[in-house]
Computed example of a mutant assay.
Amino acid sequence: MTLSRQAGLIPIGEIVAREVLPRLRHAQKLPLRISCCGAVGYHGLDDADGFDRMAVIGECPSPKDAMMIANRRVAHGDIRIDTDDTLRFRPRIVIIQDRDLGLVLAGEIRAGIVIWQQPVASDTEARRVVTEASRLRSIAFSASGRGDAASTRDHRARASLLEARLVDPYWRETAADLLRLPRAA
């Protein structure tokens, strides 16, 4: 006697593989950490005397919530690294990372808004971005050796913006969906 599968019944193994395991994997990557990378310096000193610093903004349960918090904090100029009023923090890039420090999304801060960077679409594009960012960092290193602080800072900033597109493969589709413009009805 053979047993036939009735229409509409799905084996438990298929349900676990398709629905349960992806949710568990996603839950393991949470919460998401929001950070801001920027330049720190004291009022009255030359920008060449400044240094880069990372400031943690907070944690969130979803990429959408993280984007909203980052946008709000940047718009209000509410990102500080210290209570010292003479220490000036100029935020440049907002970074959202998962628990494993995989990049979820990143954006450049300009004029009080976050310009979220479109994630790379493939591993091939990621390799091109890494190659170009490495080239820019090499130019920055050469400029640093010549004592050209402005060129060093500029090339490092351009490399960082390129690297902001290197979203972890797990998050690429989610990040692209979040950045997709609403379609007109």
Rank of each mutant, 00 (worst) to 15 (best):
S4Y: 12
S4P: 04
A7H: 07
P11E: 14
G13M: 06
V16Y: 12
A17I: 09
R18T: 14
V20W: 14
P22V: 08
L32C: 05
G41T: 02
H43S: 15
H43A: 15
D46P: 01
R53Q: 11
A55N: 12
A55C: 15
A55K: 09
V56R: 11
I57C: 13
G58T: 13
E59S: 13
P63E: 05
P63F: 05
D65S: 14
D65E: 15
I69T: 13
N71R: 12
N71F: 04
R73L: 15
R73Y: 15
V74M: 10
H76M: 15
H76P: 01
D78E: 15
R80I: 13
D82G: 11
T83V: 14
D84W: 07
T86K: 10
P91K: 03
I93C: 02
I93L: 13
V94K: 01
Q97W: 06
L101N: 12
G102D: 07
V104H: 01
E108R: 06
E108A: 11
R110A: 09
R110I: 05
G112I: 08
I113F: 00
I115E: 13
Q118K: 12
Q118P: 00
S122Y: 13
D123I: 09
E125P: 10
A126Y: 08
R128C: 11
E132H: 12
S134W: 06
L136I: 02
A140Q: 00
A140C: 07
G145Y: 02
A150W: 04
S151M: 06
R153V: 03
S160F: 00
L161Q: 05
L162Q: 00
A164L: 03
R165W: 09
V167Y: 02
P169W: 07
W171P: 01
A175K: 02
A176Y: 03
D177I: 07
L179E: 04
R180I: 01
R180E: 08
R180M: 04
L181M: 09
P182W: 00
R183W: 00
